[in-house]
Amino acid sequence: MADKILPKDKTEGFIQALGRKFVVVAPVERKDAPAEFKEIGAGDKVILDGSQMMMPPKDYLLPRYETLLKVSTRPGEVEVQPVLPDEKPRVMLGMWLPDAQAIQVLDKVFLEGKFRDPYYAARRANTMLVAVMPAQMRWSWFCASTDDVEKWKPNVDAIMYDLGDRFYIEVTSPRGEALVEWEGLAEPSSEDVAGKDRLWEQFKSHGVLPFSDGKFYEQLAWDHPIWAEIAQKCIGCGVCSYMCPSCSCFDIQDEVCGTCVERYRCRDTCQFEDFTLMGSGHNPRPDQLPRSRQRLMHKFKYQHEQYGVVGCTGCGRCVELCPVNVDIREVLNKVCAEKEPEPAV
């Protein structure tokens, strides 16, 4: 496939050219906060090099808040109106490769099997994914421990490798060819190819945990003492799951406003006290221990059993942001190796 070079000073032209064919979604800089994926518009500063913490791209495909349907009532009349997003050709740029792989996990949940989610499907259809490989690997990444990352490449349409003053655009799917048609792109030199290969090798060997055979799913035990250890310090917040690119849980709520009702969906997490709390007062996970266990078992065991993919792609957000330093790498180390972990930096 036809790989290309994008000189960084031509990035704007490249995005404009894409904008003529696609709706372009990319991480946009914000004040005091990680960049957020949105459809870019005038005045937005796009961060394409993956060098900084960013919100997970799921925020675009599975918005934190989304109206599902509206009901209007008039005397003797009830009208139900689903609110579906448009299916437009889109391209999402600037996401880390583990985030792009996390979208594969979301695809399994929302598109495959018995239930196909029309809202997610509408945004996801015709959406191309372009991942970025930053010049420096992030300290918290452990992607290569979770899976054979070579398998991830065809799941995106292109990867942009940050080679300093230029991006190396590797086209990784047939439809990805449409992304590199712009005449402002150059042909890669053999040096560029070597630079790209070097970054890929770094990615493949970065953050590999001491035991890393990637088979956490065989070793996670329901009754492991580690669950109590995490649960004791975990404060039961939404950071690890709301920031996780593959966590998919949501809540559905109805809200009455005068004569109309809005049904919306918003985030939810197995870490919250009222998650799956039933009307009867029964809660299948009554305290933090089963909640802490659920997060890891779901990602590494249940999702693997159910879909054949590992639910965690090693993006490191929960590692970096957990308020009490529950470090998923350390947990896996302890569970799988049953020895004191090496510092995993």
């Binding site: 934190r64 404060i235 039961g236 917040c237 939404g238 950071v239 709301y242 920031m243 918003c266 985030r267 919250f272 308020p323």
Partner: peptide, 10 residues
């Protein structure tokens, strides 16, 4: 705000 309630929980 993403309403993760970490501020409240901590």
């Amino acid at each position: 705000c993403i309403r993760c309630y970490a501020c409240r929980q901590i």
